[in-house]
Amino acid sequence: MSSPRYFYSIATSLIPWFLVSGLILMVAGLINGLFYAPPDYQQGDAFRIIYVHVPSAYISMMAYSLMAFAAFVALIWRIKIAHAVIVGAAPLGAWFTFLALLTGSIWGRPMWGTWWEWGDPRLTSELLMLFLYLGYMALRASLPNLAQADKLSAILILIGAINIPIIHFSVEWWTSLHQGPTLLKAGGPAIDSLMLYPLLAMIIGTTLYFGSLLLVRTKAEVLNREKNSRWAKKMLLGDQL
């Protein structure tokens, strides 16, 4: 996987599969979740926001973990592909973090009576997660030298990653002093399977979809980095020669 050329061909063949299966699962999950799942006995139909909120929150966490793993791999084993993966994952992760915040806030409005509740630790730490993504992208954007930008931003990602548990813990400690509403603890073990399966379908589908877009972005980034190599020229001009 570490050879850019090999990665490029693998990615090209994987993208349509990931994209199509992800979209099918997402459509199925959304339709089932919105129309066939029974309403929650406490929250009524408002709980249906879970089908977009939880997948986006999950993707935002997963994207950052993936970036942290890639940063680790890139710094320790100096695998160039890993840097391209980080560059590809960051904007997607930031978008889904923003989405998790937005849907969480929309969910909060009918449940808590307010668009933003500082008492909910997950929403608050998600906001800090968005700041971490933005910080990474700001650092990346202001470093013109590619090799330098790669390594420095990888260090930043790792520092952020080891601080995420601390940030989460401190936000939780802080909100426990407020005793804010904790209605968002939806589900639990006794969740109805009609509610659960669409959620699982959404989570898996969004992950596959994220994977396909990650491959697209990483592909573009790899190509941009390898534009002077022979294989890239050959492949790009192959249809015209």
């Binding site: 009524g44 249906r48 926001i49 904007p91 978008w95 989405l99 937005l102 697209v216 972005r217």
Partner: peptide
């Protein structure tokens, strides 16, 4: 459904982010 406004506005947000991300990624490529 009750809370239809909230459910559908969050759905709309989700779909628009999906569309933006897809378009952005493929345009970038």
């Amino acid at each position: 459904m009750d809370y239809a406004f909230y459910v559908y506005s969050s759905l709309l947000a989700f779909l628009s982010v999906i569309i933006i991300c897809t378009k952005d990624a493929f345009c970038h490529l």
